[in-house]
């Protein structure tokens, strides 16, 4: 590291750190959905990455449509794309729960295989519909460019936008889970499914909506993702293992844990990436998590759940 001056090193750290924030945002948005589903039902959704891709493709479609037919709408379409991504991915999640997941609650390992099958089907559908090439939407102008903090530090605007979006969604999830009566029902079901049923909570309905919500948030992650990178049929599967690691490392069903672990993993990876090659950075990050998980299998933060 001797060839860098102190000021350069700081700039690198800030810029790589900010690149880490973009990764953090996508990972956190993905992990939030996954953590809600996993915490609630003990189900691992292997197709979660594909629900993210649904959001990304929705954004792409909207950008193409608005460019062609409503050029005046271009500056605003992105906001609608986020909302549309949420609802379309959420609706697909709702259908998946209805058709598939609800039959398999008693067999978590089988759900893992079934959702893997679902992810294969979704990937091939993307490939058939949108082609194997990666696509990216035309971003509105206010998302392009960078914010010049100092001479050596440039912070891209899209990164800032995604970060704020993530904060907004996370706050929304927090309020929904911890301040609303629906969240109370979800938490009750998580802690003791049978008792919740006995006191009149429709646990099946809670499950279905939770699953849909998780997938919807993945859709938002997809919309956010399009501002950072281009989307291909297998984009979702590239992030899925990282997302699992975030959820497991943070401790299931702990919102704060998920945030902290997404932050740690994203920052570690992106700062390491600058100094050593990307693949080794990834190996070191993942390996560290696996070793920590072996020492502390319950993750960073846990809430006590009676089994």
């Amino acid at each position: 590291m001797g060839e860098y001056t102190m000021a350069e090193l700081t700039s690198i750290l800030v810029m790589q750190g900010f690149a880490g924030f973009s990764l953090f945002s996508v990972l956190l948005l993905m992990a939030l959905g996954l953590a809600i589903i996993f915490g609630q039902m003990g189900v691992i959704n292997m197709a979660h990455g594909e629900f993210m891709a649904v959001g990304a493709y929705t954004t792409y479609l909207l950008s193409v449509v608005s460019e062609k037919y409503f050029p005046g709408f271009m500056p605003y379409y992105f906001v609608f794309a986020i909302i549309a991504s949420f609802f379309i991915a959420g609706f697909m999640g709702y259908l998946a729960e209805l058709a598939l997941i609800r039959h398999l609650y008693k067999r978590p390992l089988d759900t893992l295989l079934a959702t893997w099958g679902l992810s294969l089907i979704m990937q091939q559908s993307f490939r058939s519909i949108f082609g194997a090439r990666e696509v990216s939407p035309i971003l509105p102008e206010w998302l392009m460019g960078a914010f010049h903090a100092t001479d050596t530090i440039d912070i891209p605007l899209n990164g800032i936008f995604v970060l704020f979006l993530t904060i907004f969604v996370t706050a929304g999830v927090y309020i929904l889970m911890f301040k609303s009566s629906w969240g109370l029902r979800v938490r009750a079901t998580t802690q003791n499914r049978i008792m919740s049923g006995a006191v009149g909570i429709n646990t099946k309905k809670v499950d279905r909506l939770t699953f849909a919500l998780g997938c919807g948030i993945a859709g938002v992650a997809g919309a956010a993702f399009t501002t950072i990178a281009s989307t291909g049929p297998t984009t979702g599967s590239l992030y899925i293992v990282d997302t699992f690691m975030v959820v497991v490392f943070g401790g299931a069903a702990s919102l704060f844990g998920t945030i902290a672990s997404a932050f740690t993993i994203a920052q570690a990876q992106s700062i390491l990436e600058f100094f050593i090659s990307g693949s080794i950075a990834k190996v070191i990050t993942l390996l560290t998590i696996v070793i920590i998980l072996m020492l502390r299998p319950e993750g960073l933060f846990t809430i006590k759940v009676r089994k």
């Binding site: 996993f38 003990g42 691992i44 978590p108 390992l109 893992l112 293992v241 699992f244 690691m245 497991v248 090659s277 693949s279 080794i280 990834k282 190996v283 993942l286 390996l287 998590i289 696996v290 998980l293 072996m294 299998p297």
Partner: peptide
């Protein structure tokens, strides 16, 4: 550690292994 956790961690090990070999 068992069940789903074990499955996920072994999957992560598979990923680490490939990234390491390719890298």
């Amino acid at each position: 550690v068992g069940g789903v956790y074990f499955a996920i961690i072994t999957q992560a090990i598979a990923l680490i292994m490939t990234v390491l070999i390719v890298g």
